[in-house]
Design a binder for these strands. Structure first.
Lengths: 235, 235
DNA sequence: CGACGTAAGTGTTATTTTTACACCCATTGA
DNA sequence: TCAATGGGTGTAAAAATAACACTTACGTCG
């Protein structure tokens, strides 16, 4: 056991590693959950599909790096993002030993900078059509989806995938896409509205029906107040 | 955007980082959930309490590093361990920039190598008495406990904290310690036994009562078979 | 050797939550 | 004005959860 060593020496003989971040970027359109992937125009694995990634810089926290990488691709800031872990198998990147911290992000697919994304050769791929990705990216995606499923049922994060104003049919379709199962319309609405954190507007979305569906929005203030009192979000 | 660069160059100008692993080691004795912490006999933060940690080595996966570090302290192998994430704030370690992957482990407090642990100045500290630890270790502990709570209610991992043979009162006390709340004896036993994955033995533990409590063991084969059929563990 | 103390073990009922299920409504465009 | 389409609504059965109190086995001590 090391004792009484000087601080300077302590770290000196340790190995140092490249550290990357990779972003699993979820979006929701056309009633489907999708990932924003990039076609790599550079080595290694030029031409293949991968998650958007980048290297951690000196003086930058890992979280900040993830935010930067997301921003580089989408132009977005202040996005819901959560770490799913670090991947550190020795040969996960065949080029060099690189560790990668994976984060998933939930974005509203209307908002991102399409020109910027295009310059990175980004494409939206439905979850059910995700092909083989480079390195261990498929594993990352799998774990991210699992975490999203769990978390979405217990915390109000799904809304990050929708515009501020959304209809209940839209919300239901979203949750069906996340959970991968169909839900009963009446039970779903009952549950949603019983939480009393959704504010109904007078506006209707008539793009999907003659009758139109009312727009709602999620009321974060009400939500926070309720959480204080020991309530819990559940869908 | 980088295009058509050679592989060799690709990583060359990136920064490299020290990477550590820290272990949140849970144990259960005297009806309490405890952590195995070490009193640091070396700088930085000599004299203070911290998690058991160590540096990632070249050619070693992060998971392997976590297992090694746990083994160095307890002598144990094949222990239940799970990553809780990587911590990468710039100044989390005041000495140098070090990233740390945190893992929690569940061990049976009878089994570890006490001499080895003592040589590292290890001490068991009840969860409710955890003092201020070095760096961001308190944060790690908090997150680990949260994850343990969630996971223990949904997967049969709690048994890792008990000997192979245990009594139902013991099991209940364990879960009460994990969840931080008291449970109804009859409801608890009903739930446990209804899963039909516990095998009752003829032996009794008489250390806590005249009458004695029957020993049970968790039947992993039965459990796996049931999981195939879409059942779920729940406590 | 019998009374006592102690923790182990056992079922039932009320309440809450979850699931299943079918019809009318509002609006537009033909 | 009527046909087509997705939006919106309530109730009853079933399942899960929560609340609750007494008896039993066994060792100890008087």
């Amino acid at each position: 056991m090391v004792e009484n060593e000087e601080v300077g020496n302590y770290y000196e003989n340790k190995d140092r590693f490249y550290v990357a971040v990779d972003c699993i970027i979820f979006g929701f359109h056309e009633d489907e959950l999708k990932l924003l992937l990039i076609r790599r125009m550079f080595d290694p694995c030029k031409g293949e599909l991968s998650l958007m990634g980048g290297f951690l810089n000196k003086g930058e926290s890992i979280e900040a790096a993830a935010e930067r990488v997301l921003q580089e691709l989408t132009g977005l800031e202040n996005v819901f993002m959560e770490q799913i872990g670090i991947f550190g198998e020795v040969n996960r990147d065949p080029g060099e030993r690189v560790l990668s911290a994976a984060y998933y992000a939930l974005i509203n697919s209307d908002d991102y900078d399409k020109v910027l994304a295009e310059s990175h050769h980004a494409v939206w791929v439905p979850m059910k059509d995700i092909p083989e990705l480079i390195f261990d990216h498929n594993l990352m995606v799998m774990i991210a989806l699992k975490q999203l499923k769990r978390k979405a049922s217990v915390e109000p994060i799904g809304f990050n995938l929708l515009p501020q104003y959304f209809t209940l049919p839209q919300l239901q379709t979203l949750y069906e896409a996340i959970f991968g199962e169909t839900l009963d319309k009446r039970n779903f609405r009952k549950k949603v509205l019983s939480m009393d954190v959704f504010e109904k507007t007078d506006e209707k979305d008539k793009s999907n029906s003659k009758r139109g569906a009312f727009y709602y929005r999620f009321d974060y203030d009400k939500y926070n107040a309720l959480m204080q009192n020991g309530s819990h979000f559940a869908l």
